[in-house]
């Protein structure tokens, strides 16, 4: 047998030994595995609590505010009142000036909270 042949047979023998050894991997006993399982559970961190549901951000706050106002009808009334206030503020004061002018007695009496009729009724 040549050196090369001898080397090949030795390689083949070693490969055969490796293969046989891989097939018969040393396995731990069931008792040891049971102990390892108990140890793993003992060392395990406590389960994390389930994450609390996130508050619904989109629209949630607005809905609450709307409910506090009394719903859509109340909001519509509020909007109308706001619009009226803006109109009163923005509109020209000419009309009010005319109404309240001193040379317009009828109008002034109309605006007097205690009219002549009322005074007559009271005997004044």
């Amino acid at each position: 047998m040549t050196m090369t042949d001898r080397s090949k047979t030795e390689e083949a023998m070693l490969d055969g030994l490796f293969e046989a050894e891989r097939r018969t991997a040393p396995l731990p006993s069931g008792d040891w595995l049971a102990r390892m399982e108990a140890m793993a559970l003992e060392q395990q961190p406590a389960p994390r609590p389930a994450p609390a549901p996130m508050p619904r951000l989109r629209g949630g706050g607005w809905r609450e505010a709307l409910r506090a106002f009394g719903g859509w009808p109340a909001l519509a009334g509020l909007a109308a009142a706001c619009a009226a206030g803006v109109w009163i503020g923005v509109a020209s004061p000419q009309t009010m000036t005319t109404l309240l002018s001193a040379d317009s007695g009828n109008t002034l009496s109309a605006l007097d909270p205690a009219s002549g009729f009322d005074y007559a009724m009271l005997g004044l």
Partner: peptide, 12 residues
């Protein structure tokens, strides 16, 4: 690490 016991057994 999250506390899953089945994972502990599977890893062992």
């Amino acid at each position: 690490a999250a506390g899953d016991q089945a994972a502990a057994r599977a890893l062992v």
